[in-house]
Simulated assay, not measured.
Amino acid sequence: MIPLLVVLHIIVSLFLIGVVLLQQGKSADLAAAFGGQGSQTAFGPRGAANLLTRLTTYSAIIFMLTSIGLTILLSRASADRSVLAGHPTTQSTPKK
Rank of each mutant, 00 (worst) to 15 (best):
M1I: 07
P3Q: 04
L4K: 09
L5K: 04
L5Q: 02
V6T: 11
H9N: 15
H9V: 03
I10W: 05
I11R: 08
I11Y: 07
L14Q: 14
L14C: 14
I17A: 11
G18D: 02
V20Q: 11
L21C: 12
Q23A: 08
Q23M: 09
Q23Y: 01
Q23N: 07
Q24R: 14
G25D: 15
K26Q: 09
K26F: 01
F34P: 02
G35Y: 00
G35K: 00
G35Q: 01
G36H: 00
G36Q: 05
Q37H: 13
G38S: 00
Q40A: 12
P45G: 06
R46T: 13
G47T: 08
G47N: 10
A49G: 06
T53G: 13
T53A: 14
R54Q: 13
L55M: 07
L55D: 01
L55P: 00
T57E: 12
T57S: 13
Y58G: 02
Y58M: 04
S59H: 03
S59P: 02
F63D: 07
F63P: 01
M64N: 12
S67E: 09
I68C: 13
G69V: 01
G69R: 02
T71N: 13
I72Q: 03
A79G: 06
D80E: 15
R81A: 08
R81L: 10
R81Q: 11
V83M: 02
V83F: 02
V83N: 01
V83H: 01
A85W: 07
A85I: 08
G86A: 15
T89K: 13
T90W: 06
T90D: 04
Q91N: 10
S92F: 07
T93A: 12
T93P: 06
K95R: 14
K96L: 11
